[in-house]
């Protein structure tokens, strides 16, 4: 009987530990995803984008918004860059850099404009029609609008 009680207690503790671990993993996963916000100039004619559309924009394949205005995307070269690439493009930073070098050295495009701090990036997006970018959620302010991900 004692053994059974101990067994039940052990099972309960294990369940609690697993539950906590699961919640931690879920929290970490969600917080990683939520850390990256997709933002845009306020005149951009969409409020949400699919992951495929985001991938197309940051690979230079999708160049126009629905109202035919030009898309200008910019990148933020901080820790959030790696998170964004992993989450939305499935690339590492080295692979993404190689992709754009290929575009540049075959004459297909200029290299994407990049910023080293979120504040400068947000100022640029706020002042540039059709601009879209990403940044850490903690850096957001209402100079730009948030694009939700479908």
């Amino acid at each position: 009987m004692k053994i059974r009680i101990r067994s039940g207690q052990t099972a309960g503790k294990t369940a609690v530990i697993f539950s906590l671990l699961f919640q931690l993993i879920v929290f970490i996963s969600f917080s990683s995803a939520e850390d990256v916000l997709i933002i845009a100039n306020k005149d951009v004619p969409v409020d949400s984008l699919s992951k495929n559309e985001i991938r197309g924009i940051f690979l230079g394949e999708k160049i126009k918004w629905d109202n035919d205005s030009k898309i200008t995307f910019v990148i933020l070269k901080t820790e959030v860059h790696d998170l964004f690439l992993k989450e939305y493009l499935g690339n590492t930073a080295a692979q993404y850099q190689n992709y754009w070098k290929k575009m540049v050295f075959t004459g297909k495009s200029k290299s994407p404009k990049s910023f080293k701090d979120a504040e400068s990036l947000m100022d640029y997006v706020a002042e540039t029609g059709g601009a879209v970018a990403y940044l850490p959620a903690s850096a957001y302010n209402d100079k730009v609008k948030i694009i939700s991900v479908k």
């Binding site: 540049v104 200029k110 290299s111 994407p112 404009k113 990049s114």
Partner: peptide, 16 residues
Amino acid sequence: NSSHAFEAGDIEIHGF
């Protein structure tokens, strides 16, 4: 610049 290009006005220059 930060993306390792040389820019002269609106002209971007790369090389190897």
